[in-house]
Design a protein around this nucleic acid. Structure first.
Lengths: 284, 284
DNA sequence: GGAATTACCTGACTAAAGTCAGGTATATGA
DNA sequence: TCATATACCTGACTTTAGTCAGGTAATTCC
């Protein structure tokens, strides 16, 4: 991996130079680029670019504003925040960055045959997925947190999708049982977007795992079992020696995962009408 | 590819930070690292690091010297050059960079299973090879040029290796027929090291291809046929409508390549005792 | 309703990274 | 042998990138 880095950066690092020749310094160009990609607030930019200093970002935005590439307005929903929007010129500049970057890539790949290019793309896609998977962070959040809400949105939407029914507001929104002191909600995020979620709560005196969801694009990357281990550790911390969970026959991947993780089938322990399978595991 | 860059650099770019924490700024640390990797002269460093300003490099070397990490002496073979050598402290510092970098990589890959790590390594190795192949440059050099000499060294060494005989000085060293105005020698280089070579010359009134060699590690990457196309173009430029070449039955990959490139078998046209197969091609 | 927090901004810094215009000594080619 | 080129150096810059210490207005918490 380190060998790859040295070699790759030396060769392809030149791609980043495409940000230059735009008359903008690298940092500022990156800001512009991220805005074009959908960043809307200063905070957004800061997290996307890996925790830059707020003053630094502010100054760069001032530069972009003075060049006429962006305009900034107060956020109507929160007056402290400011919304960044590309002007027509800004969009033009962004397209230019894109085009230049694309050209560079093409130039670089030019000597390769189509087959080699396909192999390269495949290899890079694999590497990307794995590196992303490695750098995912699992964090505990309040179930009312926007990230949690988004994850649950996906979860219920998908249940509705796969089972042919939709869930109303019950269970969605706030659920105090998934909050401390007797519960916990976790979100795994990549690039600020939730890619998996799961919660622990207390039910009938034992631990229970709820809201287990993995983004379809991320299945098979070991993310589910990683999250599961995390939830089990949390259940232990909450004082439970046993966890239970329910699921549905349609979710064959999930069932497989639970079995591989050491869960054993048990009889129905609740009256969830959507559940068909019930599991339990004794925690070490 | 561009998507990969953005995402990869954001995550793994942090690896480069391992150069920090060494008390050296990034640029200076890179210099030190390259010296440890085998750079011996200032020029060497400049090309390896992508054409840095000579004054800039000089200044960084001065810094490393004052910290006692390197010593510099005049090159006995060319008094203008100066040879850089790591001191004991320098080696220690270099090992430190290595170790830190290794640690970072491990930390990053920690969440992955062994199977995932293997897949990642494989993907990165593939990507690396292809990107290297894409960034190889084919350049015409004098056959007396060190690069050409090195390439021919490999070439003859390999012939000796594979055929069980060694070539003396005849043919090696200088061969005026491979120089302008009636010949040309080309070297394909990656990271300053020759990975393939080939030459055109005039023989008996037609063009002839000689010294065709591809580094074993690079075979199957399309480099041979790329070089061949280059040589054919050069032959055309030199005024030939036909090129010929000889090779040996043992070199099955080469023979396959010539056939795929449109070469047809002909009768012996010279008295090369090592050659068994003879080819010719009419240039468009 | 007042204290604390958040989101962003400004000004004053610093260090790193890189450029440019000259220099000196050595080597090379006609 | 003399002009030219090379390899490296020095000094005087400029631009980026980033940090830190305060500020102000809006929002949230109790």
């Amino acid at each position: 991996m380190r060998k790859f880095n040295m070699s790759y950066v030396r060769r392809v690092g030149a791609l980043e130079d495409s940000f230059l020749g735009s008359g903008l310094p690298y940092g500022t160009a990156r800001i512009l680029y991220e805005i074009g990609l959908g960043a809307r607030t200063v905070q957004d930019l800061r997290t996307r670019l890996g925790g830059l200093d707020s003053g630094y970002v502010s100054r760069m935005l001032r530069t972009l504003e003075s060049k006429g590439y962006v305009t900034m307005d107060q956020d109507p929903t929160d007056g402290r925040r400011r919304l960044v929007v590309l002007t027509e010129d800004g969009v033009k500049q962004w397209d230019d960055l894109e085009r230049r970057s694309e050209e560079r890539a093409h130039l670089l790949l030019d000597p390769l045959t189509q087959r080699q290019r396909d192999r390269l793309n495949e290899a890079l896609a694999t590497a990307d997925l794995l590196v992303r998977a490695a750098t995912i962070t699992i964090e505990q959040v309040d179930p009312r947190d926007p990230m949690a809400q988004e994850a649950m949105g996906h979860y219920f939407a998908e249940i509705g999708d796969r089972f042919g029914f939709t869930v109303g507001d019950e269970g969605f929104g706030d659920d105090p049982s998934l909050r401390p002191p007797h519960g916990a909600f976790f979100v795994a995020a990549s690039d600020g977007a939730p890619v998996a979620s799961g919660a622990v709560r207390e039910f009938d005196g034992t631990g229970e795992i709820k809201r287990m969801w993995v983004d379809p694009a991320w299945r098979g990357a070991g993310l589910g079992s990683r999250l599961l281990r995390h939830l089990e550790a949390e259940a232990l911390r909450l004082g439970h020696r046993v966890v239970r969970l329910d699921t549905r026959d349609v979710l064959t991947e999930a069932i497989g995962m639970y079995e591989r993780a050491g869960y054993e089938r048990i009889d129905r322990y609740n009256d969830n009408p959507h559940a068909t399978h019930f599991f339990r595991k004794e925690l070490a």
